[in-house]
Simulated assay, not measured.
Amino acid sequence: MTYADLADLPGSKTEPDGSAVVRLLSYNVRSLRDDREALARVIRACAPDVLCVQEAPRFFRWRKYAAWLGRRTDLCYVTGGATASGPMILSSLRAHVEHTEDVLLPRTPGPHRRGLATAVLRFGSSARLAVVSCHLSLQAAERRAQAGLLLDRLPHAATPHAVVAGDLNERPDGRAFRRLAGALQDCGAVRPWGGAYTSTPDDPHQRIDAVLASEGVEVLGCGVPVGLPGVTGRDLRAATDHLPVLAALRVPAAAAA
């Protein structure tokens, strides 16, 4: 993939038929413990309409850090953070927020509790997208169960179109990843774009972060934005311990009643 090709990922727009091209970025930010300015530069260069965060700050003054991230990336807080035990959703002003819900998943003794940040966003007059930001368990059995609980929440009653984005803590051949990909489109496999591996920034060798979309959502491109104009290798290495996943998706307009 050449840098010129990377620049060709479709930009945000609403089509004459009411469908919407949405740019969505999924990023594990490691609680903003690394170079925050590098992180903000990467996010701004990706120009997302929707940012699905994992490992958002969730302890003391976490809302202050969520607000800082929004200010530095020209995005608005939608839902999640401490209330979802880590996952969070931000969006541009292009998105109209119709519904939000933070979901805490059943807790296994020992590891910290996991959760889901969920929202229904509308683009234009009728292109609705249910969004889930997730961070699955480090334990394989719990991870697979969480994948099932996540799928149980889709589709949302407000829309048949959905996207799940997050740190799955598992490669595509894992049971939880396969469970999700059996019900949803694995966007990075359907329309590869950019880089494939998300871990680690210093030595990318495994794909454990993903964007998955329901049938009916057209995948226009999905991958790690290595070499995207404005995204430098130095910033990617300094920002956090994961590489981000950027996807361009075409969301159909709702059918007329």
Rank of each mutant, 00 (worst) to 15 (best):
S199Q: 13
L168I: 10
Q206C: 11
L236K: 11
V131H: 06
H96E: 15
D49R: 09
A213C: 04
A20Q: 02
A255M: 05
L138E: 00
T240C: 15
G18I: 12
A257C: 10
P109V: 06
A253L: 03
L136N: 05
H135N: 02
S19D: 09
S26R: 04
A176F: 01
R44F: 05
W193H: 13
I89A: 01
M1R: 12
D241G: 10
W193T: 02
H242D: 07
P10V: 07
R178V: 13
P252I: 08
R71W: 11
L220E: 02
A7M: 11
S125T: 15
A176N: 06
V219Q: 05
G166Y: 02
G81P: 04
P155N: 11
T100Y: 03
G115F: 01
G81F: 06
P155D: 10
G216Q: 14
A165C: 13
R143G: 03
V163A: 07
A247G: 07
C76I: 11
H161Q: 05
L24F: 00
P160F: 07
R44Y: 08
R23V: 04
L32Q: 09
V163M: 10
L138K: 08
A255L: 08
V211R: 00
V163P: 01
L129M: 05
V132H: 15
V42N: 09
Y27I: 10
N28Q: 01
L90M: 15
P192S: 09
D235E: 11
C46H: 12
A45H: 09
T118M: 11
A56D: 10
A254L: 10
A84Q: 04
A255E: 09
R128G: 02
R171T: 06
P10T: 10
R61A: 15
C134L: 14
C46V: 10
C222T: 10
D152C: 09
A40G: 15
R234S: 15
T200N: 01
T2C: 14
T118L: 13
A45L: 07
R122S: 10
G223Q: 01
S125Q: 15
G124E: 13
F60M: 14
E170S: 02
G86Y: 00
D167V: 05
R30P: 03
V29E: 12
D241V: 01
Q206D: 13
A20T: 07
Q206H: 02
A157E: 11
R71I: 05
A20Y: 00
R94H: 05
G230K: 03
E15C: 12
S133V: 10
D186T: 06
H135I: 01
A119E: 00
P57G: 07
T108S: 13
L246A: 06
V103R: 03
Q54Y: 04
A84W: 03
C222V: 00
E37Y: 14
P48R: 03
R122M: 07
S126A: 14
S126N: 14
R23G: 11
T83H: 11
G174K: 06
V120K: 03
A196T: 12
W68F: 12
L93A: 15
A119C: 12
D74W: 05
V21E: 13
K13Y: 13
A239E: 09
A196I: 13
M1K: 00
G221L: 05
G70M: 01
P229M: 11
Y197G: 06
V163I: 03
S133F: 08
A165K: 00
R191G: 00
D74V: 01
A183E: 14
P252C: 01
G166D: 13
